[in-house]
Amino acid sequence: MNVFRLIGDMSHLAAIIILLIKIWRSRSCSGISGKSQLLFTAVFTCRYLDLFTNFVSIYNTTMKIFFLASSYATIYLIFMKFKATYNRNHDTFRFELLIVVSVILALLINHEFSATEILWTFSIYLEAVAILPQLFMITKTGEAESITSHYLFALGSYRGLYILNWIYRYYVEGHLDWIAVLSGIVQTGLYCDFFYLYITRVMKGKNLTLPA
């Protein structure tokens, strides 16, 4: 463990909690892409199958359990409890495409052709693009509530901090997982224009309205 990965995990945890608070307090999931949340749930489910077989640490296990539980809780809130507030007509990104491409890539490019390793690789590729429906939805509606932009900032920062973690691990531990690194770079890259808008607007108290 290193400080970059710890802050990254805390940022990821904060994003998930911010989203749950937003939906629970406002009793609404308006502006939230249910498709992205479905993809994140698939990411955690495929990646954490080793929850009971591969014990890394108490921290690792508790975080995995929390991420799994919170992602299922989030889709429950979106598609069941507050489904009347879900903007289905704005959440129109073809996310099936993201799943198919991630499956094909995971079958072609992986570290080992085994079930758990291919599912892990699939979860890495899928996570890199899972935010696209949410970013697409914001460009479609042209704006985002400030709490949603804080959620996105925390979520985008987490993988950016992981890149620093991978640089640290490469030089300090000689550890390198180029599949995770390349996917993490793509994932963080997708947030670039959002980060620019967040820093130039939301940080100054303005709303996140995209130039139409």
């Binding site: 990965r5 591969n54 890394v56 690792n60």
Partner: peptide, 10 residues
């Protein structure tokens, strides 16, 4: 190199 048997990151 990567130790695939133990993906120790979240």
């Amino acid at each position: 190199t990567v130790s695939i048997s133990k993906h120790d990151e979240l």
